[in-house]
Amino acid sequence: MRITADREVCCSAGQCALIAPDLFDQSDEDGSVVLLDAQPDTGRLDVLREVVSRCPTGAIRVEEDPGV
């Protein structure tokens, strides 16, 4: 599983950092997404699905099964 976060698309709503603060933070400059862990445990998939659904601009994507 691999997470990508697009800072250009991000509108700094901070839903990701609210739901999963161990995986996402926000920059002090403009509040845009900072990815802390791009390859978390697969057990986090439900949380990540919520992050993706709550992100207002679709800045966060999760590849569930990369390159297998």
Binding site: C11, S12, G14, A17, L18, P21, D25, Q26, S27, D28, E29, D30, G31, S32
Partner: peptide, 16 residues
């Protein structure tokens, strides 16, 4: 909107 908003968003992040 984003030009102005981005200038203050850093004060309103989850961590801050």
């Amino acid at each position: 909107h984003s030009r102005y908003r981005k200038l203050v968003t850093g004060f309103f992040t989850v961590r801050r």
